[in-house]
């Protein structure tokens, strides 16, 4: 029973830790499926977190915080689009630039506006997305196993958690069941086919990066307004890159993306839980091992040792009409 409890606690924190990864990963999926590489997920998430926390702190409303996060993150996504779609710049370079701009300006503006060493003021309950208890959770709490799991694991998360999982299904639906999704996938594979079919490649790709911006905004909001009670400098701490790794791991598909993010979240939860605790058989494993594991796994995947990750064919290449 003790192991069971520990497991439930770890799984519960797995969910919490996976959500920012999942939202950012889905964000990247829209852009990369449309043929725009985005290593600026980290920056957009960070900027979103800051904007969300700042607006929520000033207004006292979580919803205003969310709106601000979406706005700022989408603006950065549009900058990326402007550079890589309109001006056919190098998408990697543009992504790197956005990460730095976000990293620097969140600290500078945070310090200038709130003077708390780059933090935003601590947020009250109204200004956050707090945990919600699902109907029947209290009643079922004492039912062994199933009820307990429902209460501990399924219920008691912030609304953004449920939103993130809903987005997995929604993204799948958009991608494979709608006109927009069809065109989005087509433009990432062969933009010339889309162009000759009379659909604007640029506008399609802009819409894709806007989707990326919005979802990164949600990821940032979750970090600052649900997982934490405010913005702390550099609070994304590489999550944008883990999300990118998860995206590759999932071979750019929404449902596997969810599982990849849960796996990486689980590793994170495990490393927190395991700090100092020896494992049976292997003894004490340094926490850094678990921290590095997502990256190592991704490299192993990229090396082609566990299946092949083939990115969208037109990814990273600016579209130029032939001639």
């Amino acid at each position: 029973m003790d192991y069971f409890n520990t497991l439930v606690v770890i799984l519960d924190s797995t969910i919490r830790l996976s959500i920012p990864l999942l939202l950012a990963c889905l964000a990247g999926l829209y852009s990369e499926r449309a043929g725009i590489f985005d290593i600026g997920l980290e920056g957009k998430m960070l900027a979103g977190a800051f904007a969300g926390a700042a607006a929520a702190a000033v207004s006292g409303s979580a919803w205003i915080g969310l709106s601000a996060a979406l706005l700022v993150s989408t603006f950065l996504a549009l900058v990326h689009g402007f550079a890589s779609i309109t001006h056919r710049g190098n998408q990697i370079v543009s992504g790197v630039a956005i990460n730095f701009i976000a990293a620097g300006s969140t600290i500078i503006l945070g310090q200038a506006w709130f003077s708390q060493g780059g933090r935003t003021p601590s947020l009250g309950a109204d200004a956050r997305f707090t945990a919600i208890t699902l109907p029947g959770a209290e009643a079922l709490r004492d039912v062994p196993i199933v009820g307990y799991l429902y209460y501990e694991l399924v219920s008691g998360h912030s609304a953004l958690v449920y939103f993130a999982f809903a987005m997995v299904a929604f993204t799948w639906w958009v991608l494979f069941r709608t006109r927009f999704g069809l065109r989005l996938r087509a433009v990432g594979e062969n933009p010339a086919a889309v162009d000759t079919a009379g659909v604007s490649v640029a506008w399609l790709r802009y819409r894709a990066v806007i989707c990326t911006g919005i979802l990164c905004g949600f990821a940032g909001t979750y970090l600052a307004l649900a997982q934490n009670a405010g913005f702390v400098k550099d609070m994304t701490a590489g999550k944008g890159f883990i999300a990118l790794a998860a995206l590759i791991f999932a071979k750019w598909r929404p449902v596997p993306a969810m599982f990849a993010c849960l796996l990486f979240g689980f590793l994170d939860a495990l490393s927190i839980r395991m700090q100092g605790t020896p494992l049976p058989l292997v003894g004490r494993v340094p926490a850094q091992f678990f921290q590095a594991l997502p990256y190592v796994l991704t490299v192993v995947l990229l090396a082609g040792f566990i299946g092949r990750a083939i990115p969208p064919r037109a990814g990273g290449v600016p579209y130029v009409k032939e001639r």
Binding site: F176, R177, T178, R179, F180, G181, L182, R183, R185, A186, E189, N190, A192, A193, V194, D195, T196, A197, G198, V199, R313
Partner: peptide, 24 residues
């Protein structure tokens, strides 16, 4: 040079751009 999306089906390639509705 054919303007086809290589990993799409014939049907998907044919309707691309003239889907005739937001849902497929």
């Amino acid at each position: 040079h054919f303007m086809l999306v290589q990993n799409f089906t014939v049907l998907e390639n044919v309707i691309l751009g003239v889907e005739g509705g937001a849902l497929l």
